[in-house]
Write a protein that binds this DNA or RNA. Structure first.
Lengths: 106, 106
DNA sequence: TTGACGGGTAGGAGATATCCTACCTATGGT
DNA sequence: ACCATAGGTAGGATATCTCCTACCCGTCAA
């Protein structure tokens, strides 16, 4: 739920891939997710726990299955975290464009 | 430079704080950065190395000082990584809005 | 009711991260 | 030339991560 947990969760390529799979494939039980990886199921369960603690996925029980689905809210928070840097980025772009304009004037 | 390095670099609160300091304070030598933290300088140097390898900061030598400055390009890549999830987020918002509209009709 | 299946938890091995102190190099001032 | 300063690198201690196997519980089907 905290920024810290979200960033830490995203640091693992496995967990980012889980998010991608859930994005394109929708909610899925653990076994279906596990098919995409070469690790044992308990390891994937641990990754899912990290993602759940970070609020990036949620769990819906159905019989003996537990469907995991994407929760995009923390990722939305991430774009807010990024926005001041985006402005910095745009400033640099503008600076570059101005520089190029000056070159044109020569 | 790779997505992997960028996400890994951002996983540390110390390194995110370095980026924030560079964003608001501009390019700075290591010592100035170190004043914001309670760790020893060599540890911060290691963090800076991680950030530099990820392309998030760059180094300009001036005499015996090395000014570190923010490089926003990888963060811009990050917003691109995020964009499909943003669309997912917007879809959920739209779904919620539609639901609320239905409620209004009752 | 009993066995098979979905899936979480425990505990351990090995790898990696993060801090430290000690040490090295390079530059600048006297 | 010499010493102080900026800052990187080496190597080690400890903590955390990531994987594993073994085991547990809950649910469905026969």
């Amino acid at each position: 739920m905290s920024d810290d947990e979200v960033f830490a969760a995203l640091a693992s390529p496995v967990r980012r891939e889980v998010l991608r799979i859930l994005l394109v494939g929708g909610a899925q039980p653990v076994q279906a997710l596990a098919e995409h990886f070469e690790m044992r199921r308990p390891s994937l369960s641990e990754h899912l726990k990290v993602l759940k603690d970070a609020g990036l996925v949620s769990e819906q029980k159905q019989g003996r299955f537990r469907y995991y689905s994407l929760e995009a809210a923390p990722l939305h928070d991430l774009t807010e975290w990024l926005s001041p840097y985006e402005q910095f980025w745009r400033q640099k772009l503008r600076g570059l464009r101005d520089l190029l304009d000056e070159e044109d004037d020569l």
